[in-house]
Nucleic acid binder design. Structure first.
Lengths: 199, 199
DNA sequence: GCACCTGATGTCGCTCACTGACATCAGGTA
DNA sequence: TACCTGATGTCAGTGAGCGACATCAGGTGC
């Protein structure tokens, strides 16, 4: 018996609770079972015992469901940058932030991997992921600027960090399960330094 | 009298020539005049004296019109990487390729800037641009691998190069007109090296 | 207890991007 | 002359996404 089989009981309020959560779960399950493009918003809504219109009140579009955690991750990383020891260089700040944030995914590695598989299956979703990462880089660049880093250094450090993160994440998501994300990221950041310093 | 006012003459073949070119121009003009999101594919087709269906035979979607040159740019950059002097390091190879390719845009700076303005006005278009750049990075990474560069160095060099290119391009497109793109790129690549090497 | 308000959901009708199937027909080819 | 080909047109969809209005349980003020 899965969670969606829990039936609604007349004792409760006017509506079955947690509409957003039900939509999240219904969408994720359907994206896994049938694929993203083959899944219709009407199907997601039906599975969550809601209407299509309600889906669009909770998520601006069909893709956003998969990026519900993005703003939390961004807030976390921005805070890590803002609160990093003042002595750190921009690049070290960004790197430390990402390595600490690795726990964000480490908690549910299976979920993270499955989500990544879905995203890889659809160009539309990859586009959305890229713009989320670009927004993230922009926010981290802003945080660096608040620490007094000038342009274009702030943007470059943030963008380079996001790039390293992305490559590390891909390797981790598709590589052997036992490897820790933080460790992969560490390697990639080291490689980034060595590759960019050779002129 | 603009180019679109040239009238079709009964002397010619069954169809007015260069449907694709007419669609390109009609779309660009409408995107500039009315904005991307406010422009309808039907309007573009009408302006080009074609039907909506024909638009979709030439372009997979409404956004692709603005990225018609992307594959040429990619081919150019990949070739520059493949044919670079063997002695160059990966990062120097990528950097040289981008600086040479700067001429690609330098030829029509006004067009490039206007196009960039359109893209900046729409999230959808930014998404598409990001995935084009990601594809470009992937292709350049492949070219580096053919030169014997190992992973993740190849991907990192390509991605870092694309990042520098993107930041330089933004600065160039929004900055003072007289500045040369190649010069801006040179600066940004130098900054990238210095920022990533501080640990 | 009653009237009122609020906010989450439902209903309806619409626009527009995009697609598949089939029709048309000028120009080249056998 | 008969046929074929390829670019275009026509038509009838599907599905995402949105605006406007209706519903109604639960809280609030009195």
């Amino acid at each position: 018996m899965s969670l969606t089989d829990i039936r609604y009981d007349a004792v409760m309020g006017r509506w079955e609770p947690d509409a957003r959560g039900r939509l999240l779960q219904a969408a994720f399950e359907l994206y896994v079972e049938r694929g993203f493009e083959e899944t219709t918003v009407a199907e997601i809504a039906a599975k969550a015992r809601l209407t299509e219109r309600t889906f669009f009140r909770h998520f601006t579009d069909k893709r956003e469901v998969l990026f519900a955690g993005a703003s939390d991750l961004q807030a976390l990383l921005v805070n890590l940058v803002l609160n990093a020891p003042a002595a750190l260089t921009p690049m070290a700040t960004v790197r430390a932030a990402f390595i600490e944030a690795a726990a964000f995914f480490g908690e549910q590695p299976e979920f993270a991997r499955q989500r990544q598989r879905i995203i890889l299956s659809s160009t539309e979703l990859q586009e959305r992921e890229l713009i989320k990462l670009a927004t993230l880089a922009s926010a981290m660049g802003g945080a660096l600027r608040e620490r007094g880093v000038k342009e274009p250094g702030a943007s470059l450090a943030a963008e380079a960090g996001v790039t390293a993160f992305r490559i590390a994440f891909d390797r981790w998501a598709n590589g052997p399960t036992q490897r820790e994300l933080a460790g992969v990221m560490d390697d990639v950041f080291i490689q980034l330094r060595s590759i960019t310093s050779e002129t």
